[in-house]
Design a protein around this nucleic acid. Structure first.
Length: 252
DNA sequence: GTGGGATGGGCAA
DNA sequence: TGCCCCTCCCACA
């Protein structure tokens, strides 16, 4: 479930299990074995999430950068790690608990400048309390790109993925095809606030719920089904290389 | 049992 | 734009 909320939640839970401790680090799968050996025994200073990126700061000054991509998955728990399930790229063990990572798009050691260059190319993150949306609004306000593509662009806003894109636009009543510069500033502000609220809820619960606990989504993955508000069939199309869903009755 | 698609993104062309 | 990465899960048999 890797959108921004998953990554921030992972950072919070893993801090409790690992931060401040010297870690045993290995790579049961073997693909990260050399790097794991460099980290093994070091104290983990902090874990920080920016959009969909995670940075683990180690005492020697290096960072482990993780991006889950579409397939990546963390497992974690208190006590001793169980036998690895599937292909585990990297495993951490502290005196309090363990974390395993499988299937990531990125799992690499970076120095401070490598970390900075990643942070320089992502936009404000609604889950970071001090981030402000002005930069994102400026990009959107002068762009002819559809708002549905801009919301997926991590250099515009960091942390929103395909589910939140569809749900945010439905809740705002905006069709995905509307050019960025045609979206009123008041609507952008409302989108930002709603993104912050929905992502925070997702961070707390670990699930994306934008409608009701049982019927979780308004439009995402509901092609052909009746709109929960107006009963018009939900439609879908490809935008920014992913399927976008919307209600032609509610979104203009 | 199994095949396709999935909540991403980098890269070549 | 399409391919690849390379894992999990669910719809369908």
């Amino acid at each position: 479930m890797p959108e921004g909320h998953t990554v921030h939640r992972a950072a919070r839970l893993q801090r409790e299990l690992l931060a401040g401790s010297a870690l045993a680090v290995d790579s049961p799968q073997g693909r990260f074995a050399e790097e794991a050996a460099l980290l093994d025994g070091q104290r983990l200073e902090s874990i920080e999430a920016y959009g969909k990126h995670l940075f683990y700061a180690f005492e020697s000054g290096v960072y482990l950068h993780v991006h889950l991509g579409l397939f990546g998955k963390f497992r974690m728990g208190a006590g001793r790690a169980p036998e690895p399930r599937g292909a585990v790229r990297v495993r951490f063990q502290s005196e309090r608990g363990w974390v395993t990572l499988s299937g990531p798009t990125a799992c690499e050691i970076l120095d401070a400048s490598g970390r900075r260059s990643i942070l320089a190319r992502i936009g404000p993150d609604p889950l970071r309390p001090t981030d402000r949306p002005a930069r994102a609004f400026a990009r959107i306000a002068k762009s002819s790109t559809p708002i549905g593509a801009l919301l997926m662009d991590q250099s515009v806003i960091a942390g929103i993925g395909n589910v939140y894109r569809a749900e945010l636009l439905f809740r705002a009543g905006i069709a995905p095809q509307v050019p960025g510069r045609a979206v009123p500033r008041t609507a952008l502000l409302e989108l930002w606030r709603d993104a912050r609220a929905l992502l925070r809820a997702g961070e707390r619960t670990g699930r994306i719920v934008t409608f009701r606990p049982r019927e979780r989504h308004y439009v995402y993955n509901r092609t052909g089904k009746p709109c929960r508000t107006c009963a018009t069939p939900i439609v879908s199309a490809t935008m920014a290389a992913r399927t976008v869903y919307w209600c032609p009755g509610c979104q203009h």
